[in-house]
């Protein structure tokens, strides 16, 4: 069975997803995150840990952005309020944060950079240098991900469902644009859609205090590949919970936890009117092409 981990929308999800078989979930604060739709006030984090501990669920902190040197003091302040040893694990994107946490605590630290771990040797090196689980680059094909999974198995987590982030900018691109065209539109913490005139795709965009992120136009789904992933030795899958309904997240978790069939899963998801696709899992990206279509 592939254990599924995800980031929660609200505190009620802790109980709901525990009942679906989840053992590990994540939360984050506005400061610690970028491009995450649901964050929690720092003051409420402790309460969430209390809830999780009461039902024997591991709650982790996600720090999914690069922390600049001038922000380091604030990072330490937030970790102090949370209690650096309180989380069951951390998920980080910054090697500096990884390095610091491993010096301060024995708590597991999972590493994902979205893009930069693209072969088994880089993944293996991150494990040697202190991380406990690595999420390989999102843009790898399924075949390449399977290769890494087979070599490192329990130390690998891959996204199995959700809108995939395509880019993260530290700049408030949407706010900047609205300023340029002199429109007073709140740009933060809302979902926006983008369409390039040569293409039919409608991409998702989200802005917060740490910049702008653009997401794929469809939900990447590896539902049909569950057996293949299990055979390769994958034990941990990730759901990108941004912009998804809670019931859909629960459906997918129940499927991967062998509680419902694929047909039941697809049937439920169909009602939600989300567009499912395979992303780049079956599309290798070349270093160069003759023309851009």
């Amino acid at each position: 069975m592939i254990e599924i981990m995800t980031h929660i929308h609200d505190q009620d999800q802790i109980l709901a997803l525990k009942s679906s078989g989840c053992h590990r979930l994540t939360v984050t604060t506005p400061f610690l995150s970028s491009g995450i739709e649901h964050t929690f006030d720092l003051d409420n984090i402790s309460m969430l840990f209390d809830i999780a501990e009461n039902i024997d669920l591991k709650l982790g902190i996600m720090i999914n952005r690069l922390i600049k040197e001038t922000e380091w003091t604030t990072l330490l302040d937030q970790l102090h309020v949370i209690g650096i040893t309180r989380p069951s694990f951390y998920i980080v994107s910054d090697v500096g944060v990884l390095f610091y946490l491993k010096q301060q605590t024995d708590i597991p630290v999972y590493f994902h950079s979205d893009t930069t771990i693209a072969n088994q040797y880089d993944a293996s090196l991150m494990l040697e240098h202190g991380t406990d689980i690595v999420m390989p680059a999102r843009e790898l094909t399924l075949e390449k991900k399977l290769q890494i999974i087979k070599s490192l198995q329990a130390n690998i987590m891959i996204p199995v469902f959700g809108y995939q982030v395509m880019s993260r900018s530290y700049r408030p691109l949407l706010n900047n644009y609205f300023s340029q065209i002199e429109k007073n539109i709140p740009s933060k913490h809302n979902l926006f859609f983008f369409k390039e005139d040569q293409r039919d795709n409608i991409y998702l965009g989200y802005e917060d205090d740490h910049g702008f992120s653009m997401f794929t136009d469809e939900v990447m789904s590896l539902l049909e590949e569950k057996q293949q992933l299990e055979d390769a030795g994958l034990t941990l899958g990730w759901i990108d919970s941004n912009f998804l309904k809670e019931e859909d997240i629960q459906t997918v978790i129940e499927y991967f936890h062998d509680r419902i069939t694929l047909e039941q899963t697809i049937s439920r998801l169909t009602n939600s009117n989300i567009k499912l696709g395979k992303g780049l899992n079956y599309q290798d990206t070349a270093t160069i092409k003759e023309e851009v279509k």
């Binding site: 893009t115 395509m166 880019s167 653009m214």
Partner: peptide, 11 residues
């Protein structure tokens, strides 16, 4: 950390 080109043009 950008894959806009990957998704939009397969480059």
């Amino acid at each position: 950390r950008c894959t806009l080109s990957n998704h939009m043009t397969f480059r």
